[in-house]
Design a protein around this nucleic acid. Structure first.
Length: 815
DNA sequence: TTGCGATCCCTTTTT
DNA sequence: GGGATCGCAA
């Protein structure tokens, strides 16, 4: 997990904030030695607005980190005056690490102390969450508010739709939520929305929006979009807050500026301050319009395109030289992106010579595609390791698994690739960071924690009130809720006055009394004080797991069902406890704005819990990418932005997938799809393959596909095409590569696909009922098998289930 | 109140 | 194909 730089007030810090390096001049010089002229220019420009147009792979992060280091070490800017904003925790974490490394080196005792103290490098959402805690009152919240995720949002919207007497078939919760979210990103709150609603449908949505907002506030909760919207509002309407922030952050830096939405733009502008003849705000934005891929989420590309209009004094620096990719990859990306009409032309160039052609592979179906990708990755892994390289040239040396990635347009495409990776025995990780916190058992546990932290959190309360079952079913809960709603008070509060609720069975009354008593023992009746209350966060989490009966429930399940997922659930709960412990160790109470001195004395445990829940709520998929694990990374194209890999495979280059079917409506959407493809291509350093399937099964229906138009937009001279879509290897027992019919000018057939037919003896070695061992799945019994070069064995593994494996790669051994 | 089976809708992409 | 939701039976 990842923690953000603390927000520290000016008073917390000494006047001379940065320690002088051993040899300051030499150190500052060292910041520039390996920079190009435009890069230097961007680093040196510290005062006044600056727009850095950074092409893919042009050393953008290097420029940003050097610039921060230069501000501190070269210009004597106190680190706490610098605010650097990114979109993902991962980007923020990396940037922080690199800056600390740079400045740490200048620190004589080697510790990360003053040189970076108070430096704020964080995400928009984290910053806003923190500001909202500090200025909760100005935003009409209590500082212990919950942050609702999309599942919570959906629950509330459903209620709101029902409450407005509308049917969910005419107003699909998801699309209503999208409408609300879009409005919020555009800084349109529910009142403004209602004012501008003219037709029936938008009037209905306005009503839902209003009631949704009301429920959120009643639950003392905000959704993701509120974090931005409310902070923008507070900054706009509250001069004191605005002044606080401006005084604190004199230097503002924003990465991926092309992806900012209206709310983020507003926040940045308000913190930076207006541009006047006597005042030039120190705002530096970095981005690339060609990598704008969040238009669907309200990102407004004109924020970056109109930067110079907004800040007339702005300096513009263009970073065009690419240091990442080989010439063919770069030429491919450049040729493709030129098909976008609404675009400022920006050359993309490299001084590198040579490099392999990129590959385009047409496959038969998605299974085949998976195998082709797996083979390709294996080839990349092994190439150059063998003494005689099949090509005899450009032996790049085998890439390790961690240097490779597979990208896809939609998450749904990952499954087939996963299967292929398993069958081919290639270690892989899927970049899905939220999945841990989305597990049922973890969500339940977090539900308890949320209610403990915020007693008004009705969505979480309704989630856990009867888990494990304790005799408070829907009917009883609804009865309490009805009264609570009528009185505008939290449900949990009404539960404490259970006698006042009509029509409750005595059993329910009993259960509710027991439940509130249990809550009170955890929170010390809300005071978080007293001998009974846990001292540490991990303690509290552990205790809640045990005393709520959650742990017992899953223990029972694990014991009776024997399926692996049930056993995993207990492990996950244990992991939650250790994650709490880990968080606790890194938590700095002085840095928590909710813990502000004097005004609102928050019991430390509650502050800790609150901060912990916040850190959980703001994790994203992309945060989980951890290349240290030595495995191939599987992720969506969106998640890939900002990363680089030695070898990249992009799958599903088909009309309807990439470009996505929903992009057909408008030219703008189509151009965004093309940028998405561009982003994927420019992640590759040395090798790139794009694949398409002739047939694809979507939602159980197999259909003939049309190759993506993007494939026609690639430069022929840099592309090696292979068509394997007519091969029937699996059925005939022949190899795939036989019938390449692509337009490959070299006339070769499908290259060296796969030239190692089955090893180790074939299926005859594994008759049905024989016992086998698999390196990953363990012991199993063969159920059936099919022969041929693509021979498969179906094996039932103990405790795992039935798997079908390609014999050639399965590394099965007879036991 | 709970548990299970039938049915329905789905899918961009994410903080 | 599959996950979520709903309705019905116990």
């Amino acid at each position: 997990m990842d923690f953000d730089a603390p927000i520290i007030t000016d008073d917390d810090l000494p006047d001379a904030p940065h320690a002088a390096p051993v040899d300051p001049e030499a150190f500052v010089d060292s910041l520039f030695v390996d920079l190009t002229e435009p890069q230097k220019q961007a680093v040196l420009h510290t005062e006044g607005p600056l727009l850095v147009l950074a092409a893919a792979g042009s050393g953008k992060t290097r420029v940003i980190t050097r610039r921060i280091a230069y501000l501190v070490a070269g210009c004597g800017v106190p680190p706490w005056q610098i605010l650097s904003l990114t979109f993902t925790n991962k980007a923020a974490g990396e940037m922080r690490e690199r800056v600390h490394k740079l400045l740490g080196a200048s620190n004589s005792d080697g510790t990360e102390s003053r040189a970076t103290k108070g430096l704020t490098i964080t995400t928009f959402h984290s910053l806003c969450a923190r500001l909202l805690r500090r200025y909760a009152e100005a935003a009409g919240l209590k500082p212990d508010f919950s942050i609702y995720d999309s599942a919570d949002q959906l629950a509330l919207v459903k209620k709101a739709i029902a409450g407005a007497q509308l049917s969910t078939s005419n107003f699909q919760p998801r699309s209503v939520l999208t409408a609300i979210s879009n409005a919020k990103n555009d800084l349109v709150d529910c009142e403004a929305f209602a004012m501008s609603a003219s037709d029936f449908s938008s009037k209905c949505i306005a009503a839902v929006y209003r009631s949704y907002t009301k429920s959120l506030r009643q639950a003392n909760a905000v959704d993701f979009d509120d974090l931005l919207l409310l902070v923008a509002k507070v900054l706009k309407q509250n001069p004191d807050v605005r002044e606080d922030c401006r005084r604190r952050w004199q230097y503002l830096l924003i990465d991926e500026y092309q992806d900012t939405n209206k709310a983020q733009f507003q926040i940045a502008s308000l913190i930076a301050g207006e541009s006047t003849p006597d005042r030039k705000p120190n705002i530096c934005v970095v981005g690339d319009p060609d990598q704008a891929i969040y238009g669907w989420r309200g990102a407004d590309i004109s924020n970056i395109l109109d930067f110079e209009e907004h800040y007339p004094a702005a300096t513009v620096v263009k970073l065009g030289e690419n240091f990442r990719s080989t010439a063919p990859i770069l030429a491919t990306a450049d040729t493709l992106i030129k098909f976008n009409k609404r675009r400022k032309h920006k050359p993309l160039f490299t001084s590198k010579l040579g490099g392999e052609k990129i590959e385009v592979n047409n496959c038969r179906d998605e299974r085949h595609e998976g195998q082709v990708v797996a083979h390709w990755l294996k080839r990349m892994h092994e190439e150059g390791k063998q003494e005689t390289d099949s090509d005899g040239e450009n032996a790049v040396g085998g890439l390790s698994w961690r240097e490779m990635a597979v990208f896809y347009r939609t998450n749904a495409l990952s499954r087939v690739i996963e299967e292929a990776m398993r069958e081919a025995n290639i270690p892989y990780t899927i970049a899905r960071g939220t999945s841990f916190y989305e597990r049922e058992e973890v969500k339940n546990a977090i539900g308890y924690l949320r209610v403990v932290a915020n007693q008004a959190d009705s969505v979480s309360l309704s989630r856990i009130i009867n888990v494990p079952t304790r005799g408070i079913g829907d009917t009883s809960y609804d009865r309490v809720e009805m009264v609570a709603e009528r009185e505008g008070r939290p449900v949990l509060e009404l539960m404490r006055e259970v006698d006042r609720i009509p029509d409750l069975s005595s059993r329910a009354v009993n259960a509710i009394t027991k439940f509130t008593a249990m809550m009170d023992t955890w929170t010390g009746s809300g005071a978080f004080m007293g001998a009974q209350v846990s001292a540490t966060l991990a303690d509290l989490v552990d205790r809640i797991l045990k005393e709520s009966g959650l742990e017992g429930m899953y223990k029972h399940q694990a014991a009776t069902s024997k399926s692996e997922t049930d056993a995993e659930r207990l492990d996950n709960l244990a992991e939650l406890v250790s994650s709490a412990k880990e968080f606790e160790q890194e938590y700095d109470p002085a840095a928590d704005p909710g813990n502000d001195a004097g005004t609102n004395q928050v019991p430390p445990l509650l502050a800790l819990l609150r901060a912990y829940l916040e850190s959980i709520a703001l994790v994203a998929d992309a945060d989980a990418i951890d290349p240290s694990q030595g495995s191939v990374t599987l992720m969506t194209l969106h998640a890939a932005k900002g990363l680089e890999f030695g070898a990249v495979a992009i799958i599903g280059l088909e009309e309807g997938i990439l470009p996505h079917a929903r992009a057909r409506e408008s030219e703008a959407a189509l151009e965004e799809e093309r940028r998405l493809c561009f982003v994927g291509i420019t992640r590759a350093m040395r090798r790139l393959v794009l694949t398409a399937s002739k047939y694809r099964t979507v939602r159980g229906i197999t259909e003939r596909t049309i190759p993506s138009r993007f494939l026609d937009e690639l430069p022929r001279e840099h592309v090696h095409r292979a068509d394997q879509s007519d091969a029937y290897a699996d059925l005939e027992g022949t190899r795939w590569g036989g019938s390449a019919t692509g337009d490959d000018s070299q006339g070769g057939s499908g290259r060296d696909f796969p030239s190692t037919p089955s090893s180790r003896g074939g299926v005859s070695q594994f008759p049905p009922n024989s016992k086998v061992r698999h390196p990953q799945f363990g012991l199993g019994v063969v159920v059936s098998s099919t022969g041929g070069a693509q021979a498969r064995v179906t094996v039932e593994f103990k405790g795992i289930g039935v798997k079908t494996l390609v014999l050639e790669f399965a590394r099965l051994t007879r036991v």
